[in-house]
Design a protein around this nucleic acid. Sequence first.
DNA 1: TTGTATGCGTTATCAT
DNA 2: ATGATAACGCATACAA
Lengths: 332, 332
Amino acid sequence: MKVTLTTVAKEARVSPSTVSRILNGTAAVDPEKRKRVQEAIERLGFRPDYAARSLAGGRTSTIGVVTQFIDSPFYGEVLRGIENALRAQHHVPLFVSGHWEVSEERECINLLMDRRVDGIISLNSCLSDAQLLEVADRVPLVVTGRRLKGPRVVSLDYDNVGGAVTAVEHLIELGHQHIAFISGPTSHADARERLGGYMAALGSRAHRNPHLIMEADFTEEGGYKATIELLASKVKFSAILAANDQMAYGARLALHEAGLRVPEDVSLVGFDDLYFSRYTTPPLTSVHHSAQDLGSLASKALLKLIAGEPSDHLLLPTSFVQRSSTGAPAGH
Amino acid sequence: MKVTLTTVAKEARVSPSTVSRILNGTAAVDPEKRKRVQEAIERLGFRPDYAARSLAGGRTSTIGVVTQFIDSPFYGEVLRGIENALRAQHHVPLFVSGHWEVSEERECINLLMDRRVDGIISLNSCLSDAQLLEVADRVPLVVTGRRLKGPRVVSLDYDNVGGAVTAVEHLIELGHQHIAFISGPTSHADARERLGGYMAALGSRAHRNPHLIMEADFTEEGGYKATIELLASKVKFSAILAANDQMAYGARLALHEAGLRVPEDVSLVGFDDLYFSRYTTPPLTSVHHSAQDLGSLASKALLKLIAGEPSDHLLLPTSFVQRSSTGAPAGH
DNA sequence: TTGTATGCGTTATCAT
DNA sequence: ATGATAACGCATACAA
């Protein structure tokens, strides 16, 4: 009833091994037989069984991808890049979500290893470097959001420092003296880098003020609360740089509720340039980079790693997109 | 070197089948042996091989999920619901994206069937009913966004008509006479239903005017363009109901660029109540439903279907969330 | 209740 | 270049 390699082999009057070889391009075969086999496959509608393939061959053609939330607007774009790049190489991503919890993330990785994925892409993991290196010891690994060196690891990240510097410089050029910063959780390397860029760009200027820095959690809600606190603290500022767009969205709401206009009263800059930032009111000025590229580069690096080619840490550039949420400060 | 069922069996001085039975709860076993086996598993760090399991047992513990874009804010929430519900039942979702293309969607389904998924959830497919029934003929299937009847299919959807009716009634109550509607592509059942609700709520009132209806494609860009056209057409309206939040976001931008205030000049209502709608400026009034619930209900229905229990079409209720994007029309 | 034996559909290692 | 044949790790029918 079921069509297997053997069925095809019989139909084409060759051995199962020959059929397998044709399917995988493992060895050269007589063009005549190849034709017979291909016709048989067509006629019978044969589809190879992945489970059998994995069991015999040890490969699953599946790449595990650990993300934090499957519905995150930022990671969503990354996943899209991964999906595309992988599909082109006949692999499929298996997405799992760690929800920013160390224990959940460990479970995710176990699940992926149980399923014998050929490799893992870990997006901004909250595991320690040591834990990740341990994982890399058992399966090829690509990580984002940090720099990690090891035998079977590739790390890649954006130029977070450079991006933040550009954003601050843009605001300074517009005439802003007091620039608030809503940071991501400083337990994360990329959050620290963006904060570092902000500090570096301000340098030793007089207008560098620790009260202007609020630590939040990269969510809309976090940005919202941070901004409310900022306003309540009465510290003087004419611009806000948020460490990601989602927090900028939250800040936008807090400003709106406080009756402050953007950019007339407060300029607002994000980081990530999510698709949606074109549609905020007003459209958001932001540090741009391609999340999709990150995903596709991560995929390609992993595939190389699996193939045995070594790779180095990759640093992706950022650019700057000025929209309507920034302008000169009042009275300038 | 590698720890298999047999390794564990030897260590625990029982047969491989006994270990298998314990792992799967297939049959009752001596508590004494069960203990020995569990200790052996622990000690050896045994993890069953999914490929072998699938090959021998015919099940993969994997559910195929066909979505359109992995980074869609709406489907993202659905995927999250699916992920949660499935994980609780020790299944994992395999997400693939059809990109609103019939051919891609067919490829996705083929890919899933090649991998012998235990069942498929198809989110707002663009395949025909007949094509979907054909799929259901080969694998348990759950579809959303339409009503579909068949032996191994379950369909579920929101009460699109009811939701749209509520939204229009809300606007009428506020005093709006001329309500524009930005529709989704009418090739989709759910888009037609929302449009139908809008029409039904307006009934035979004089203020029903075909020029107030614009067809778009459920994207921000589509909503934006539709609104620009609407404004250019000079047709009179004081409120816009968009068939989904994403188009409402686009409409918001177009209104902003035209110098129109929301809600003072134009009231705006969305549909879906995406997470982000709380953060728009002003926060968006919208027809609410739980995308996560849709996902988890779809998952549960599928698992039941796989287990052989029949299910019926499910209609999920909507509610209404009034925020700040709606108000009385000018001069009211 | 438990063990033995077979089969699942491939790939890979041998020969030839 | 091609064909036997042996794994791959597990589930299950059957026997005990």
